[in-house]
Amino acid sequence: MPLTSRPLLRRTLVTLGSAALAALALAPAARAADPEYVALGDSMASGPLIPDVTGPVACARSTHNYAHELAATLGVAGLTDVTCSGAASKHMTEPQSLSVLGQPAGTAPPQFDALTGGTRLVTLTIGGNDAGLVGVAQDCVNLLPTGTPCKTRYTQGGVDQVAARIDAFEPKLSAVLDGIRQRSPQARVVVTGYGLYIKPGGCWPAVPVLPVDADWLQGSVNRMNGVIARQAAAHGMTYIDLVTPSQGHDACQSPSAKWLEGFVPTSSAAPLHPNRLGEANYARIIAGQIQAAR
Results as ranks from 00 to 15, higher is better:
D113G: 01
D81Q: 08
G86C: 05
G202V: 09
T80E: 03
G157S: 07
T266K: 11
A293W: 01
V189M: 08
P255C: 11
A168W: 07
K90Y: 00
Q138R: 13
N225Y: 12
P205L: 08
Y37F: 15
G102Q: 04
E170Y: 04
Y66A: 03
F169Q: 08
P56V: 06
C59Y: 06
E36P: 00
D139F: 13
G128P: 02
V100K: 11
K151P: 00
A168K: 13
A234Q: 10
S267N: 12
G226K: 05
W259A: 09
L173H: 12
L24Q: 09
V76L: 03
T15A: 13
S97V: 10
I286L: 14
Q103Y: 03
R183N: 02
P245Q: 11
F169E: 10
M224S: 14
Y239N: 01
M92W: 12
R10M: 13
R31T: 11
P255N: 10
G262V: 03
R294H: 12
N225D: 13
A71E: 11
V221K: 02
A232M: 12
R11W: 04
T146I: 10
R284P: 00
N129Y: 05
S220V: 00
S97T: 15
L26Q: 07
S184C: 09
P109H: 04
Y66K: 01
I228W: 03
A187D: 11
L9P: 03
D42M: 06
A45E: 01
W204T: 11
I290Y: 03
Q186C: 02
V38T: 08
S5C: 05
R6L: 15
L16T: 07
Q218P: 11
Q289C: 02
V189G: 04
A29D: 03
T152P: 00
R183E: 05
I166D: 11
G248R: 09
R181Y: 01
R6Y: 14
G226R: 05
M1I: 06
Q96M: 07
L260V: 15
P51E: 12
S97H: 14
C84E: 09
V190P: 04
G262M: 06
Y37V: 02
Q253M: 14
I166H: 09
R230L: 05
V212L: 01
A33H: 14
H64A: 07
Y66P: 00
I285E: 15
Q247H: 14
L98E: 00
T116R: 07
G55W: 03
L277D: 08
L21I: 03
C84L: 09
Q247L: 11
A229P: 05
R230Q: 13
A25K: 00
F112G: 07
N225C: 11
N281D: 04
C252H: 02
Y37T: 02
A233I: 07
T152S: 13
D113M: 01
T15S: 08
A33V: 00
L210G: 06
R61E: 05
P255D: 10
P145N: 09
G201W: 15
S246C: 07
N222K: 14
A280H: 15
D130I: 09
V122H: 07
F112K: 01
M224W: 12
A233C: 04
Q291I: 10
G202A: 14
L115A: 12
H91F: 10
P51N: 11
R31H: 10
W216S: 05
